[in-house]
């Protein structure tokens, strides 16, 4: 299996944020990891990316255990991530932000020139001009997050709520971009999102979390009909 998450558990003090979460991701698919706010999506995501260490369970990526590894080693293993709230390096130029990721990412034998070349490719893929980071809008910063993650040459891209703070047209554009990234780069994608509507159009499968537990998984159309999922999302505008 490409990515196999089994019985992943994370506690913060007495609070169990993620409890026995298991799911699999096949190579080449786009998986939606969804759930309302506070359902444990981001924690699960951070556990896979190495930003948090699991209390129990395992994360196997292409046969190797990556659960509990430091973040830089997870990146070297071929897992790239974006942040829900963009975290660009503001003192660096846009190109330098992305080139740094190419230089230190999964293929760390790159020359400086090659890293900058790759960075330009990534920026082109997400449709960004080379400018300063200062003054970029929300949409451009999200694109920068994507470009930087892609520049690390990941086999698996973890995209964290990439649509928060965007309007409808921008959301559609971002969803299309993830589809294009898979098509052009052959990158497998786990997309964490609490807005279900746009996501359903692009993902192959969904895993739905609530209170740190997987409550449903399957094809988007089936998941959307699931009684438990409807209950969790009822009364919210998350289907919008």
């Amino acid at each position: 299996m490409f990515l196999q998450v089994s019985k992943l558990t994370k506690r913060f003090g007495g609070f169990t944020a993620v409890s026995d979460v298991s799911f699999e991701v096949a190579e080449g698919e786009i998986l939606g990891l969804i759930g309302p706010n506070g359902s444990g999506k981001s924690t699960t995501f951070n556990l896979i990316a190495g930003a948090l260490k699991p209390d129990a369970g395992s994360v196997r990526f292409r046969g190797d255990e990556v659960g509990g590894l430091p973040a830089y080693r997870v990146a070297h293993a071929g897992i790239g991530r974006t942040y829900q709230i963009p975290r660009p390096f503001k003192k660096l130029s846009l190109l330098e932000n992305v080139a740094l990721a190419a230089f230190y990412g999964a293929n760390s034998r790159l020359s400086r020139e090659k890293a900058f070349e790759l960075a330009k490719d990534s920026l082109k893929l997400v449709g960004l001009q080379e400018t300063k980071v200062e003054g970029l809008g929300a949409s451009a910063l999200k694109k920068l997050e994507l470009a930087r993650a892609l520049a690390t040459q990941p086999k698996l891209l973890l995209a964290d709520e990439s649509l928060g703070g965007l309007d409808h047209a921008e959301m559609d554009g971002a969803a299309d971009m993830l589809a294009r990234i898979r098509a052009e780069r052959g990158v497998t994608i786990v997309w964490v999102e609490h807005i279900m509507g746009v996501l359903m159009r692009v993902v192959d499968r969904c895993v739905v979390l609530d209170h740190g537990v997987v409550i449903a998984q399957g094809k988007p159309a089936d998941v959307a009909k699931d009684a438990k999922v409807i209950e969790v999302y009822l009364g919210t505008d998350a289907f919008a």
Partner: peptide, 23 residues
């Protein structure tokens, strides 16, 4: 590139680690 890496680290260690920098 080490200088850029350290500048990135001085701004945000976690984000720097996420792109593969051994902080």
């Amino acid at each position: 590139m080490g200088r850029l890496a350290l500048q990135a680290i001085s701004e945000d260690e976690e984000a720097a680690a996420s792109i593969g920098i051994h902080v």
